[in-house]
Computed example of a mutant assay.
Amino acid sequence: MKNEMLSVPEVSARIREGAVMVIAGDETLLAQLPRGAWIGGTTVYFVTDTGGAVVRDRLFVTTFAEASGATPRYLPHGSLSHIADGYVTGGFTMIMIPAFSLAHSEFAVAGQEYPGLFDQPLAGWVTGVHLDEIGTRAPKVFDGATGMAHDEGVVLLHVALPEGRMVDLDILNIFAQGDNADLSFTFPESGFSTRKATVNGAEVDFAAYVAQNGIDTRLPLVANYAGALVNVSIRDVNPDTGEVSFYAPVVAGVEYRLAGALGNYAEAFAEGAEGKGEGQYSCNCILNYLYGDLEGKRTGSFTGPVTFGEIAYILLNQTLVRLDINKAA
């Protein structure tokens, strides 16, 4: 596996040679690529070898040199329950979803219920645009089989591996549940927004509660799923409508706690990444990039696109997702 920042001609040559790749970059660059064994998604934010940066003139490419084959595939938003239909035995699947799309919402809320979804490693990210372009330019995904761009649905790359290889899919979450064991949140319905929450057993107007208690919305709500900590990040608190919106859905009945405050973001990532190895595919959350002021700063050995959501089987927030291919023991 190899991560590189390359020009359009360099990436095009790799595609024509038959390389299996996932590609991230500006829409105008992705649109110039030939057909092949790849999928792509829009973003202009990256963590590079020299630190976080906005890059518009090159593409970030992860090449899966270990792959014995790959099939790009596009699914419209009404067909996402068929993601696992293309799984290859012993392989893995990469996925990209446009931010703010119907597919984004559908996968986030219902993805865990799709037949066979967890039968092999599924990793990827939610594509985005420059923050100044939100609302004027739609995030896109690209299907390498056709070269077509889509602002709805998902693209998948079903990757086959030779015998003797195994896939390691993991997340790096620098957040933990806060020390206040008496402060817990549950929600009456699953979804990307809410007006009500139950806090320590009492129902409250959640927007008013957040404002009145000075909650730092840069810190995510954290749920503990049998030892795996999963973040839900607060997107907006609207005091006029009383609505609080999230970057990933809260799940009804699940107990959340506010994350504990961090010191230095970049240092926390570097410490968390220590000993995780090098050369893996990874993607990091735009909220970590912004709140951690990661421009010009490295996050350990990990390089890759900065995204509007990360996927390790399910949609995640404020998390780094990493995937590596190793020789089987």
Score class of each variant (00 low, 15 high):
residue 213 N to A: 11
residue 214 G to N: 14
residue 214 G to C: 09
residue 215 I to D: 02
residue 216 D to Y: 07
residue 217 T to W: 04
residue 219 L to Y: 06
residue 219 L to D: 06
residue 220 P to T: 03
residue 224 N to S: 15
residue 226 A to T: 14
residue 231 N to L: 05
residue 232 V to H: 01
residue 233 S to E: 07
residue 233 S to P: 02
residue 235 R to G: 09
residue 237 V to W: 05
residue 238 N to S: 15
residue 239 P to Q: 13
residue 240 D to Y: 13
residue 240 D to C: 05
residue 241 T to A: 12
residue 241 T to P: 05
residue 242 G to Q: 08
residue 243 E to V: 15
residue 243 E to Y: 03
residue 244 V to Q: 07
residue 244 V to A: 08
residue 244 V to T: 14
residue 250 V to Q: 00
residue 251 V to P: 00
residue 251 V to D: 03
residue 252 A to P: 04
residue 253 G to I: 10
residue 254 V to F: 03
residue 254 V to H: 06
residue 256 Y to I: 06
residue 256 Y to V: 05
residue 258 L to G: 02
residue 258 L to W: 03
residue 259 A to S: 10
residue 259 A to V: 05
residue 262 L to I: 11
residue 262 L to S: 10
residue 263 G to S: 10
residue 267 E to T: 15
residue 269 F to S: 01
residue 270 A to N: 14
residue 270 A to T: 15
residue 275 G to K: 10
residue 275 G to S: 12
residue 276 K to G: 08
residue 277 G to L: 07
residue 279 G to F: 09
residue 280 Q to E: 14
residue 282 S to K: 04
residue 282 S to I: 03
residue 282 S to F: 08
residue 282 S to T: 12
residue 283 C to S: 13
residue 283 C to M: 09
residue 286 I to N: 00
residue 288 N to K: 04
residue 289 Y to A: 01
residue 289 Y to M: 13
residue 290 L to N: 12
residue 293 D to Y: 07
residue 293 D to I: 02
residue 293 D to L: 12
residue 294 L to R: 01
residue 296 G to H: 00
residue 296 G to K: 00
